[in-house]
Design a protein around this nucleic acid. Structure first.
Lengths: 143, 143
DNA sequence: TTTTTTGCTATCATTTTGATAGTAATAAAT
DNA sequence: ATTTATTACTATCAAAATGATAGCAAAAAA
């Protein structure tokens, strides 16, 4: 499917790629929890339906945010990994987490604490740490 | 309508409030272009349908991101203004703009340049400037 | 007092999402 | 070698959200 952008606005363009209910959660699962397979994504607490998961992964791959491949020793599992383009969404996720922590906690009493992650101390450091961790995971996975 | 959160994840919770195709564009219109009325929002380049616009404004108001009011000298126009909760989305929008500029420009040849805005020089300064500008606009509007 | 503008609502077609069942291929267990 | 289990989906259908357009009442402007 071809990306058909609504306008020349950078914000609108981003939403045209990842502005649905699920894409950013998949990026979160990969970046923060190191999820890699269809099964991994299926068991998130938000319970994505397989049809939607399938469609999103395809879309993200088509748009260069993730890659899909099989490892030599396992012909069954597909391994989905973020590209640099996808890894660079980390700062967006960080700002969303900070906004949520400050502004939505009152509405969602079940929200996890983020205090221990260190975002409040140095968000750019924590963000860079998450990105570098993920890059290491990619290297390990492919070696 | 009651906010029903999918999980305790801060990212998912944010998407449950503003994770649709339009909400963040409305925030953009207000913050960056100072849009305030139903008409203003109607004439965006992305062409939002009136029914959806109506639903989104209601939703954002219910969730405390905007206020709706009439000014004493005009009983026809409704004035929609961001609350602090809404204004604090500015850093999220900034990171989205930067990601888009770097990663989507190739795909969307029509994308506006953001060079002159100064995001690349000092993003937190530009973001704070946008927020303070908007706070001034709110003050002026209500005085 | 007519015309225009604003802020919607109503209607209906289309698209997207969600829930669930089922299937083929591979891998693991016996 | 054969059964069992796992993985990665696809198929199906119901429900919800989106999109396009028309229309309408109240207020403002002419």
């Amino acid at each position: 499917m071809k990306s058909n952008f609504r306008s020349g606005c950078p914000v609108a363009s981003t939403l045209d790629i990842i502005g649905d209910k699920w894409s950013l959660l998949l990026v979160r699962d990969m970046l923060v929890q190191g999820k890699k397979t269809f099964k991994d994504f299926s068991i998130s607490p938000e319970k994505i339906a397989p049809g939607i998961l399938s469609a999103r992964l395809k879309w993200l791959e088509e748009n260069g945010l993730i890659t899909k491949q099989k490892l030599p020793d396992n012909q069954k599992e597909n391994i989905y990994l973020l590209t640099e383009k996808g890894i660079e969404l980390a700062p967006v996720i960080t700002e969303i987490i900070l906004w949520s922590d400050k502004n939505l906690r009152e509405q969602n009493s079940e929200m996890f604490s983020i205090a221990e992650a260190g975002f409040h101390q140095d968000k750019s450091k924590v963000t860079a740490g998450i990105q570098n961790n993920y890059r290491k995971l990619v290297e390990e996975t492919l070696s």
